[in-house]
Structures are given as C-alpha cells and as structure tokens.
C-alpha cells in the first residue's frame, strides 16, 4: 500500500489588519485550497486571524544555523548604525 502523501505546507496568519503575517505552524494538504481551508480550521478556531498565507514547505529556503555566527557577523562591529552611538549635546531636543 504505497500511498502518495499530501505535501507539507507552512501556514502564516495575519491576526489583524495592519500587522504582518506570522508563521504559526504547518499542516498537510493535497493542494493550496485545501491547505487554506485546513489552516482556517486548525489555526483560527478562536478568531486568531483575518488572512492566511500557505507556502509549500519545499519552497522555503533557510540560512544555515551552523554558519549563523559568521553569516551575521558583519552587523556586529557596526555600532554606528544605531542612534545611541552618537553624542548629542545637552539641551538639544527633538533629535
């Protein structure tokens, strides 16, 4: 009995207008329509969302956790990208 398994989908939900879609979990479904219907039943039973995105998991590409330190290193020595790096004389307002 070799049955073709339904593909895996990642589910993203916008909880309310004005906010980003956020990853909430995954599920299996035969196609994108079924994935959206299932996502509604599984992840929004208590009005947690007003919009759903589904992406087939095989289409998600991720950075490597083992190289994370080196990969994100370039940002570490650039403190001047943050406003707190700069001296502002006393008495200056609205800056």
């Amino acid at each position: 009995m070799t049955e073709k398994e339904w593909p895996l989908w990642e589910v993203f939900i916008r909880s309310k207008q004005g906010l980003n879609h956020k990853h909430v979990g995954s599920l299996r479904a035969a196609d994108e329509e079924m994935a959206i219907d299932n996502a509604r039943d599984v992840y929004t039973r208590r009005s947690e969302g007003i919009s759903i995105w589904v992406v087939q998991s095989t289409n998600v590409f991720a950075s490597s956790p083992t190289d994370a330190d080196a990969f994100f290193e370039p940002a570490n020595d650039k403190v001047y990208r943050h406003p707190t790096f700069y001296d502002v004389p006393d008495g200056i307002e609205h800056m």
Binding site: E3, K4, A30, D31, E33, M34
Partner: peptide
Amino acid sequence: GQWVREAANAYAEKRR
C-alpha cells in the same frame, strides 16, 4: 479514509 485521500490527490493533480 484512504479513498478520500486518493481522491483529493487526483483532484489536486487535475487542477494543476
């Protein structure tokens, strides 16, 4: 439920 899962696969394929 096997026939349901197979039917869903067939339907998805047809739509594709």
